[in-house]
Computed example of a mutant assay.
Amino acid sequence: MGVLSWVILGLIAGALAKWIMPGRDPGGWIVTMVIGIVGAFIGGWLGALVGLGGPVTGFGIGDIITATIGAVIFLAIYRMFKRRGN
């Protein structure tokens, strides 16, 4: 259930990241949701490094916040590289 919960959490985090950082994204909502999934993994990994928790065991508020922060960071990096490439 660990990976599946990260994917579901990533979809939620992607939607929250899009809400926090509105604007036109190259790729639209689908790419943003994929970015949310990747951001959830990155946020969980970084959270584990600094001692904020490990893999998702449920959908606690801390897990959602950590995944959303990871998704926002990854979305910002994605936007930066996509705009540079145009």
Rank of each mutant, 00 (worst) to 15 (best):
L16S: 10
P22F: 06
L11Q: 07
I73K: 02
G51P: 02
G28R: 04
L52M: 15
P55K: 08
G47M: 03
G28S: 12
L52P: 11
V72H: 07
T66S: 15
Y78V: 03
K18V: 10
G85T: 04
M1D: 09
I37R: 02
V3Q: 07
W45H: 12
G51D: 05
N86T: 11
L16H: 08
T66R: 14
G53S: 11
G70A: 13
I37M: 08
G23Q: 04
N86F: 10
V56M: 13
K18N: 13
A15E: 06
I42V: 15
G44E: 13
F81H: 05
F41K: 03
F41E: 07
V56S: 15
G27Y: 00
F81I: 12
F41A: 11
G10D: 06
M21E: 06
G53L: 06
G27F: 03
R79K: 13
N86M: 15
V34C: 11
M33R: 02
G54L: 07
F74P: 00
G58F: 00
G14L: 01
S5E: 08
I35E: 00
I69Q: 00
I65A: 13
I30V: 13
I35N: 00
V7G: 14
P22T: 09
I64K: 04
R79C: 05
G39Y: 01
I37F: 08
D63C: 06
I42G: 07
P22N: 08
G47F: 03
G58I: 02
P22K: 09
G53V: 09
A67E: 12
R84N: 08
R79E: 05
V31I: 14
L4Y: 02
L16Y: 10
G36W: 01
P22R: 05
D63Y: 06
G70I: 04
L16T: 01
I73P: 04
G85R: 09
S5T: 08
F59S: 00
A17P: 01
L9W: 09
A71Q: 03
G58P: 06
A15C: 11
S5W: 04
W19G: 15
R24S: 04
G39I: 00
A15N: 06
A40P: 13
L52A: 13
A13V: 12
G14M: 01
D25E: 03
L16Q: 10
A76D: 01
R24G: 00
M1P: 09
G43M: 06
G53M: 09
M21N: 10
F59E: 01
I69R: 03
N86S: 14
V72E: 08
G70F: 02
L49Y: 11
G28D: 10
I12R: 02
K18D: 14
I69F: 02
A15M: 10
G36Q: 00
I12C: 07
L11D: 10
A67F: 09
K18R: 15
A13D: 12
L9Y: 12
P22E: 09
A15K: 04
W45A: 14
V72I: 15
A17S: 07
I42H: 00
P22V: 00
G58S: 08
W29K: 09
L52G: 14
G54C: 05
V3I: 15
V34S: 06
I20F: 09
T32R: 04
G60C: 07
V3W: 10
F59P: 01
I12P: 03
W6E: 07
K82S: 15
A67Q: 10
G85W: 08
I37A: 10
I37K: 02
I65C: 14
R83M: 05
A67G: 15
M21A: 15
